[in-house]
Design a protein around this nucleic acid. Structure first.
Lengths: 195, 195
DNA sequence: ACTTGATCTGAACGCTTGTTCAGTTACAAC
DNA sequence: GTTGTAACTGAACAAGCGTTCAGATCAAGT
């Protein structure tokens, strides 16, 4: 019936996000209850509502923060270096960024159905911005005669699907290092688009 | 409090599976209740338990039937025709089979987390059998000097991720026909493995 | 020591869940 | 028409859900 000793909102808010992320990634949004998230944080369920308006907002915020981080972190391509270099950079960035955030990536791809329609639209538009960056690289490469793809948009979707697929199997403790994986996927992607 | 007029178990069982499949694909296993499935079928919730032992079995059966159909439908490669032909055939088969069953595919990929551990193991082993078929094609192609891939298993995962990604955007009413999509992906896959 | 605001607790609310099963009606065979 | 089985209904059970909010305790400032 009282405040928990030692509690600070500056601590609690990130711990709620971290707990929600871990449980949503592991079990799925609909399968996880607010009570489970609260238990993971070490508070009662009512306390969560000081930090999120509702469960849907908790999911939406996790997805938006991840996608905004992704877009912010994606470097502007070095136009002087050429399209093949830009593509290589994109592949390395994608694999490395995603491998470092398996939970966020998983939620961002798997929980789209659990978003309300307006939240879904907002998230879809962020995802589209990221896809457009690769499309721009492919367009530039074709304009320079360095790349040859039958359909730029389809190639974009194919490459992103292939790269994102790394997260379904890659483990730090696995047979291949992240650098090796980046090199293999870099090579495959180059071949896929070569002129 | 009585039997529904005109009811036949031979009708009801497939209608339960179809309703479960549609709702699980659209909303996710955990977000769909047995009462919703029953309502879609036109029965009361108690009736479902004449056909499934529980909700988890309903999901598991849908996934297993799909994967067994996939494995049964996959043709044995024509060894005389050569590895490139076998690869082309695999790509066309994968895209065509998956495009025809968007709900089953979606459930098979998205609902793994909702399987109990023993069910998960059973499903994973079926998926592995399918992946092995592509690995065998890649191995044969390398043995013949027709293919060159840095890591056969990684190439298998990359190709399947790319091909399965088609289902996230392809629509019969879209800009490209299924045949065009098959051709584009066939070309990309060939390039990806070419010697 | 007192006051004010922060941060939670605890329980309530209205609703829903998966599963079970006694009983009822429909169907089929004779 | 009777009998036996099929196939459901309807309600109960035990448990849980998301969200709200009055009130209690902790923390910080004076």
């Amino acid at each position: 019936m009282a405040r928990t000793a030692g509690s600070h909102s500056a601590d609690t808010a990130p711990r709620i996000r971290a707990a929600a992320q871990r449980l949503f990634a592991q079990h799925g949004y609909a399968a996880v209850s607010m009570r489970q998230i609260a238990a993971e944080v070490g508070v009662q369920v009512g306390a969560l509502y000081n930090y999120t308006s509702d469960k849907q907002s908790l999911l939406f915020d996790l997805m938006v923060v991840h996608l905004e981080d992704l877009l912010d972190a994606l470097p502007e391509p070095d136009t002087a270096a050429g399209p093949m270099q830009a593509l290589d950079e994109f592949v390395r960035f994608h694999i490395r960024f995603h491998a470092a955030r398996p939970e966020e990536v998983f939620i961002a791809y798997m929980e789209l159905r659990n978003l309300s329609p307006e939240n879904f639209a907002a998230v879809e538009s962020l995802r589209r911005l990221y896809e457009d960056r690769l499309t721009a690289i492919l367009d530039a490469g074709q304009a320079r005669g360095v790349f040859r793809v039958a359909d730029t948009r389809v190639a974009t979707m194919a490459i992103i699907a292939m790269l994102t697929g790394v997260n379904t199997w890659f483990r730090e403790t696995g047979r291949l290092s992240l650098s090796e994986v980046e090199a293999i996927y870099g090579d495959m992607t180059r071949r896929l688009v070569a002129g």
